[in-house]
Design a protein around this nucleic acid. Structure first.
Lengths: 101, 101
DNA sequence: TTATCATATTATAATAAAGTAATATGTCAA
DNA sequence: TTGACATATTACTTTATTATAATATGATAA
């Protein structure tokens, strides 16, 4: 039986998860993440390997950073992006396993 | 090393996965799915338990059905909806395990 | 100290999704 | 055979996302 409090918790979880999934749910963002899962990359490296404009790439990266999916470190004039969240690594592994073959 | 063919495959996978994740990425659709994972439900049952209008519920259900996430069977004037896809069950289990506690 | 490179930001136009209200369809019970 | 019930569809408004272009910032090398 569900108390009012547990209903609130469930709804809150749904909102959080929905936001994360929304941040994932774009073909190019998934592709970017796929590349980052193989190791950190600069924006330029991603630009070469994904087929996407510099501007949009930068916007996608900053959105995913905002949502906590990825993070970055600066080195000179380069930004190295990487997957920050262990839960996401796990989730992406399952997605690849289930949907990519 | 990536051939042109394998790049195409990867892009196609990303599109498919993005579409599925997009269909998932709404708090109320996740809530609906959560309830359906516990067993099939009529639209009316879902309406009671989710806080959502009949019209929108019906639209959400038909969208998720279209994307292949759920299916339904008719019994008299009731429609019983259920989770159709084993991959989705697995994915949802991981999501709950990672993000809901 | 200026030109160039790497990246970010802003503005905006185009497209898609969500929310809402009204109406339609099909089934059953009286 | 009509009224009520369960659900679906349609039309429309509002809001969010994506795409694109232009400009800005900050670091380095010449």
């Amino acid at each position: 039986m569900l108390t009012e409090l547990s209903v609130k918790k469930i709804k809150k979880s749904c909102e959080e998860v929905a936001q994360i999934l929304k941040a994932l749910s774009h073909p190019q963002r998934l592709l970017i993440l796929g590349h980052l899962l193989a190791g950190e990359k600069t924006v330029g490296e991603l630009e070469d390997v994904c087929d996407i404009s510099q501007s949009q790439l930068s916007q996608f990266l900053s959105r995913m950073k905002l949502e906590g999916l990825i993070d970055r470190r600066k080195e000179g004039r380069f930004q190295y992006y990487f997957v920050a969240d262990e839960r996401l690594k796990h989730l992406m592994a399952i997605i690849q396993q289930e949907y990519c073959r």
